[in-house]
Structure formats: C-alpha cells, structure tokens
Simulated scan of single mutants.
Amino acid sequence: MNEAHITVVGWVAAEPYYTVTAAGTPFLSLRVGCTPRRYDRQSGQWQDADTMFLTVNCWRGLADNVNASEFQRGHPVLVTGRLRVRQYERDGQWRFSAEVEATTVGHDLSRGTADFRPVQRGGAPTDGDRQEARDAADQWALTTPEEGPPQAA
C-alpha cells in the first residue's frame, strides 16, 4: 500500500469523544498535541517549536479499548496510523484537517505505567460510519485545544 503511515509522540490535548455510530460501530476521536524541541546552541537551551495538533480517529475494538483505558487530557501517548489530510469548506473558506486513522494508541510508558487487559475484536466500518466520523472530527475545528469538543445535546 502506498499510504503515509506515521507515528506521533505527544499528549492528549482534550478529553476524548466516544460514540457508537447509527450502524452500531464504536468510534472515538481525540486531539493529540506535539511540541517539537530543538537545542539552540547560541543560547545553550532547549526551545519549544510551534505545537501541532492532530485529530486521531479510532474504530471498533480500538475505540472501545481507548475509551476503557481512560485516556485523559495531558496523558502522554504514542499513536501509529494512516495520515489523512482532508479539505473541506466552512463559512465560505476552504480549510484543511490533518487526521490519523489510528491502528495503535497507547500510553507513553517512558513517562508512566499501564495495566494491560486483553479484549476481543469487531468488524469493519460502513460508509455511513465514516461520514459520522468526518462530522465528529470537524467539531475540533470549532474549538481551541483547551476547550475540547462541543458536548452532545
């Protein structure tokens, strides 16, 4: 496959959003922030670069597992998956959204510990499920990283 697979090391930037689609497929979306650090030889200190925020989409068993693992804002995470860049129109302007369709998500164990419990897997998402995921992912564009997604009515 000629897809862009990436690994992201960062932290959970907002509380994860978990739902079950109309077709019954579990889905979880979370924001992950990454702040690269560079050593400045002139000042002799580490400098933070601009923070990048990505939307991470999890499906089926992975969504259930991330939800059960109680990821919270500020937790250090590792994410691997397929990079997706979507273009969409909102308020008459074209926008871009960087997303990762996750294949794995875990706590960064260089910064803490975890308690592993194995579980069972499920089936593939439908086109309707994917549309619900796009709609859910767009909610992040309406908020700042500190606010998190809008709450369901």
Rank of each mutant, 00 (worst) to 15 (best):
V79S: 08
Q72G: 14
N67Y: 12
V56P: 01
T80V: 06
F53E: 14
H75P: 00
T80F: 06
W59H: 10
L54I: 14
D64S: 12
T51S: 15
E70S: 09
S69A: 15
N57S: 14
A68K: 13
L62N: 00
H75E: 11
V66W: 06
R82Q: 06
C58G: 05
L78W: 08
T80K: 08
V56E: 02
P76Y: 05
G61K: 00
R60M: 10
H75T: 03
T80N: 13
E70T: 01
W59T: 02
R73E: 13
T51F: 02
P76H: 09
T51Q: 08
Q72M: 02
A63G: 11
N65T: 14
T80W: 09
L62A: 00
H75R: 08
T55Q: 07
S69Q: 09
P76G: 06
A63Q: 07
V79R: 09
A68D: 13
G61R: 01
V77H: 03
S69V: 05
T55E: 10
A63C: 11
E70I: 03
W59G: 00
V66Q: 07
G74W: 12
L78Y: 09
L54G: 04
M52W: 04
L78F: 12
V77M: 02
E70D: 14
N65Y: 12
R82N: 08
E70H: 11
S69W: 06
T51K: 00
F71R: 01
L78C: 08
V66L: 07
T51H: 05
R82I: 07
R60G: 15
C58Y: 00
L78G: 05
R60C: 02
T55H: 11
R73T: 15
R60H: 12
T51R: 07
F71I: 03
V56I: 15
N57Q: 13
V56N: 12
T55S: 11
G81Y: 06
L83A: 11
L83Q: 09
M52D: 08
L54M: 15
R60T: 13
W59S: 06
L54N: 12
A63N: 01
V77W: 07
Q72C: 13
T51L: 12
E70A: 12
N57M: 10
F71Y: 15
V66D: 00
G81R: 10
L54P: 03
V79P: 02
L62R: 04
N57V: 13
T51Y: 06
R73Y: 03
F71H: 07
F71C: 11
P76D: 07
T80C: 06
R82W: 02
R73F: 08
N65G: 15
W59E: 04
